[in-house]
């Protein structure tokens, strides 16, 4: 099992990096994050009453909030491009043990998106710190752990949705709806039950973990973590079941 899994992961690694879309999405994430970090740093330095001594890492969640979608797109397309192109047929010919393929893909895409996302967030903190010098501090890097969790749970959800829906458009729209559009939109209508629905969506948890907003709705850190994990596990279970039980393509 170990050796088979290792070589399947090695193949997934080559698969991921040998298509251009991976590079484009990562480049987009990098540019977006560092651009925002630079602007945030500069505007902090220009404030009349600068927040002296605040941690520079506070920039990380702000840049990750919009840029996570470029990272999640890497995960979605790593799965769905194979269904669009028919590439899933040779893939399953080479790795007919579908659970092995599933977990190798989950591990490789999640690791790449999360590790690079956190690394980018780290350099964004440094960029902000330099741009705002000498106002910000380099203490309190623990927020990067929160960033890592949000990216990890988001990528797991994205991979699961990709396997479940088998469509790039469907996967990307699903990720957007669950992580951004519905959590932001539903509470706007002012109906309590719509807000309650919004509160159990993974996007509300992600936003709360990153920004501590919205306050006053009774959200907790622990509850948000659990909720994101439940969504991730649910999507993975659905995606796994479809891959293992259905025809290849």
């Amino acid at each position: 099992m170990g050796e088979l899994f290792a070589r399947t992961c090695a193949a997934e690694w080559t698969r991921l990096w040998s298509v251009r879309s991976t590079w484009w999405f990562l480049a987009a994430a990098w540019a977006m994050m560092h651009g925002i970090a630079l602007m945030a740093g500069v505007s902090t330095a220009g404030q009349p009453d600068p927040p002296v001594g605040d941690p520079a890492w506070g920039i990380a969640p702000i840049v990750v909030l919009p840029a996570q979608f470029a990272l999640l797109a890497v995960a979605v397309t790593a799965v769905t491009a194979e269904y669009a192109t028919g590439g899933i047929v040779p893939t399953l010919q080479w790795t007919p043990r579908r659970s092995v393929l599933f977990w190798a893909r989950v591990v490789v895409t999640t690791a790449v998106a999360t590790v690079l996302g956190v690394a980018f967030a780290f350099t964004c903190g440094l960029v902000g710190w330099v741009a705002a010098r000498p106002i910000l501090d380099l203490e309190g890097a623990g927020v990067l752990g929160t960033v890592a969790f949000v990216l990890l749970a988001g990528t797991l959800l994205s991979v699961g949705l990709g396997f479940l829906l088998r469509s790039t458009a469907g996967g990307l729209v699903g990720v957007f709806l669950l992580l951004l559009v519905l959590p932001a939109l539903l509470p706007q209508f002012g109906y309590e039950w719509l807000t309650e629905i919004a509160d159990v969506l993974p996007g509300t948890s992600a936003i709360f973990l990153l920004t501590e907003e919205p306050s006053g709705r009774g959200l907790t850190e622990r509850g948000s973590v659990v909720l994101m994990l439940v969504w991730a596990v649910g999507a993975l279970a659905g995606g796994w079941a479809r891959l293992v039980r259905d025809d290849a393509g």
């Binding site: 251009r20 491009a81 192109t85 028919g86 590439g87 040779p90 393509g249």
Partner: peptide, 8 residues
């Protein structure tokens, strides 16, 4: 034709 067209 069932291959990813973006790979070499």
């Amino acid at each position: 034709g069932a291959v990813h067209p973006g790979r070499t």
